[in-house]
Design a protein around this nucleic acid. Structure first.
Lengths: 186, 186
DNA sequence: ACCTGAACACCGTTCAAGT
DNA sequence: ACCTGAACACCGTTCAAGT
């Protein structure tokens, strides 16, 4: 027992394969059985590592948000940080097939985890001088707008028709800018 | 054949019962079989009236949006109209269990219907002096923010923790106001 | 510790056949 | 025209049993 025998499965591997599956076949085709099949394992095996499909979706959503935080840095004030974060989240959501729908469906893994997540959410804005409750509220507004917009954008039939009439990216930026500029420092 | 024998089922009845089912058991428990069971009919019977579950969700979402339009009237300018619409949509979404998630999942029934819906969407704003493409863009921004926010708000575990720190309704209004005030007349 | 086999209780959808 | 019966091809999850 030098260290630990590598198990056939890992939480990270499962989540990674789930992303590949969704990329290939779409979110509606993500099933525990298909996912297991891709890893040459029985569906039940996944339940040793993950409590269920809800947790799987939660972990995937967390990765998408994490990418947005990772893509935000070097802002001088909280408004600039919110603008950067909004753009980063938008591109993170758009870069995964059905990313927005996934984050819409997913719920925070545990009630306890929600509290920790909220602290993590507000931290960058607090560092830039915002009070905790204001930071949470503003961050929630930007996440809401961005998530809602990306869902709108991904809405197939609507999209094909609308993109003849407007530039989605430019319109998103205008909305984000309006929202952020109007938010009070309190 | 005086007029037409009333059939046991109607599209409207099916949609209405679907709302009742969701209210009782939540969106995750909405199945064609349970729905049929509530109407004392086989699941297959529903398919005579509705093409499938996707169309059912589309019809439900349409009702939710319709209520928002119905609750918007008497605005003097397009900004006031957008504020009213945002608030009306928010309360329409919040008044149906899982309403936001439902609208997030639902897609416009048909590609042809999307075009008609887009025209309907932009009409009130055009009447208040906005150019068609600008009207669509602004309306999309308000819908996105409102839908995203209501989803955030409905996110159980997160909610319980956050509502100790902020007033959801007040914060939503601040965000909506910021967004609308910042939008350009173009 | 980690996975298989097999089962339980469901799904959405289709389609012949009934009335 | 409208619905039933029965089937097809799936689901998520659990749990004894294997290794």
């Amino acid at each position: 027992m030098v260290q630990r025998l590598i198990p056939g499965l890992t939480r990270d591997q499962i989540v990674a394969q789930a992303f590949v599956l969704v990329e290939d076949e779409g979110l509606d085709s993500l099933s525990m059985r298909k996912l297991a099949g891709r890893m040459n394992v029985q569906a039940a095996a996944i339940y040793w590592h993950i409590s269920g499909k809800a947790e799987l979706l939660g972990l995937m959503a967390r990765d998408i948000y994490a990418a947005a935080y990772a893509g935000t840095h070097g802002a001088q004030d909280w408004r600039e940080w919110l603008r950067q974060f909004g753009r980063a989240l938008h591109s993170s959501l758009a870069s995964h097939r059905d990313g927005a729908r996934l984050c819409a469906i997913a719920r925070p893994p545990s009630p306890a985890d929600a509290e920790k997540q909220a602290a993590h959410i507000a931290a960058p804005l607090k560092a830039l001088g915002l009070e905790a409750s204001v930071a949470l509220a503003h961050q929630a507004a930007v996440i809401s707008f961005t998530l809602g917009w990306t869902m709108f954008e991904a809405n197939g039939p609507m999209r094909d028709f609308l993109c003849e009439m407007m530039d989605f990216d430019a319109t998103f930026t205008i909305g984000l800018e309006s929202l952020v500029n109007g938010l009070p420092a309190k």
